[in-house]
Amino acid sequence: MSLPVIEVKDLTFSYNSLGTTHTAIENVNLKIEKGELVGIIGHTGSGKSTLIQHLNGLLKPNSGTVLIDGEDIFSKECDLRKIRFKVGLVFQYPEYQLFEETVYNDIAFGPKNMGLSPDEIDKRVKEAAAFTGVEDYLNKSPFDLSGGQKRRVAIAGVIAMDPEILILDEPAAGLDPKGRDKILGQIKKYQREKGNTVLLVSHSMEDIAKLATKVLVMADGKVEAYDIPEKIFADTERIEKIGLAVPQITEVFEILKKNGIEIKESIFSVEYAKKVLLSLIGEGEDA
């Protein structure tokens, strides 16, 4: 068993405001292996955004530790800036972070902070721009772009740092279907082809079911479950109890099952559903 890239131990954090405290995450324990694409789901306010901000040290926990590649990021010896280059974090609605005169310079902000050579920066910026499909706007002002274009520039700004661990907080929310598929496809590629670890927060069960190799379910600041999607989406009742839903295709098959069609597996992606249905029909023709 190899060392997990991310290990979270007994993490608890509460927000303080005006003398009141609100515990946002409580006793979170988690081990994420290298190369996984972890889908993070949970109801609004379940602590997803809070949890991921601990993984690159932006929030400091009240108690507990976070180990990245076995290194305790909250220890005194640890240089948090180095961790942030290794753990790239794309915030929820990241478009408000743009500030440079041109898209090019904005994407270059991260690589520049890393102290890379100008040639390397140039290469990284162009790659990252192509990654999210903004290569045509490189010389435009980021403030002249549409919301969705800004979003893609902001994502490119993190991709340009080429982080080993990429964390995205609802990157596709509010994008059109095509832009959405493109971004998510690229994120999948980032994990599968480069062997990087990716954490993806999303409210779309379909996206999670299609992309994730593991699913982390958060509920009320606690980890409800962490397992492969097959197992997570098999338990429809449990998922619905915490205010989430299983993918629509899974629901369809639940109904089919209730109506007496014999399907053993739990089905959560359209592709797989197609395969199962075709084989069912195939059987019918044989008989």
Binding site: N56, R84, F85, G88, Y96, Q97, F109, M161
Partner: peptide, 26 residues
């Protein structure tokens, strides 16, 4: 915004006065 820029490696805490003033631009 500070969190988002820190996540991109912005250094807000070290350096001289001029460097810190510049770090505020983002």
């Amino acid at each position: 915004i500070m969190s988002a820029q820190k996540a991109r490696g912005a250094d807000l805490e070290s350096g001289g006065l001029l460097k810190r003033a510049k770090a505020l631009i983002p």
